[in-house]
């Protein structure tokens, strides 16, 4: 199914009706769909670094010099994409009934979590304040690393071209938290 850039832009903005959205979701993808998609996103951000892969509504993995970093559309950088970007975000934890009731409309809402068991964590961009991600987890649960993409394989096997420069597919989050722990112990 050939989708023009205009239609794709409307899809990204959620402006297509469900019938057309469904047709795109279910249809086979054009070979250049990914590139078209990236082009649209690239035109919309104010910075120059090349988007390698979109990560969410506001976040992108971009190529910066000889590094791949996570960047917010406002320009704020979260560092190496292999480190959970959430470690560098502002975190708001809803761990009391009062805080939870700010987002659940009624005290009797059946979905209202018990704060002793479940907390809601919101992650914000420290620069523009955009809400980037929300997780609902048991209290004390480690921060979830939502998505660590294997960029090299994605480029070579799916886009049939090499990544601009190679990168090791490895979770580096633990290296950072280990440093933090060391600092705390000192």
């Amino acid at each position: 199914m050939e989708i023009s850039k205009d239609v794709l832009a409307a899809l990204i903005d959620g402006k297509l009706d469900w019938e057309r959205t469904k047709a795109i979701i279910s249809g086979e993808k054009d070979l250049d769909r990914f590139d078209k998609y990236i082009e649209i996103l690239q035109e919309r951000v104010p910075w120059k670094e090349k988007i390698v892969l979109p990560l969410g509504e506001h976040l992108y993995i971009v190529q910066k010099d000889r590094e791949y970093v996570v960047k917010c559309d406002c320009g704020y950088e979260f560092g190496d994409y292999r480190v959970n970007w959430k470690l560098n975000a502002l975190i708001h934890v809803r761990d009391t009934k009062e805080k939870l009731l700010e987002v659940y409309p009624y005290p009797e809402s059946p979905g209202l979590p018990d704060p002793e068991y479940c907390n809601i964590r919101e992650f914000y961009c420290p620069n523009c304040g955009a809400l980037l991600e929300v997780e609902a987890v048991p209290k004390f649960y480690p921060i979830i690393f939502d998505f660590l993409p294997d960029l090299g394989t994605f480029y070579s096997d799916w886009l049939n071209r090499p990544l601009p420069f190679p990168t090791e597919f490895k979770d580096l989050t633990y290296d950072v938290t280990k440093e933090w722990r060391k600092e705390l112990e000192e």
Binding site: M1, A23, S26, E28, K29, D30, L31
Partner: peptide, 15 residues
């Protein structure tokens, strides 16, 4: 009838 751009297979339907 369409061609799947990745696998180059003929696809019939479902629309």
């Amino acid at each position: 009838i369409r061609i799947d751009p990745v696998t180059k297979r003929l696809i019939v339907g479902p629309e």
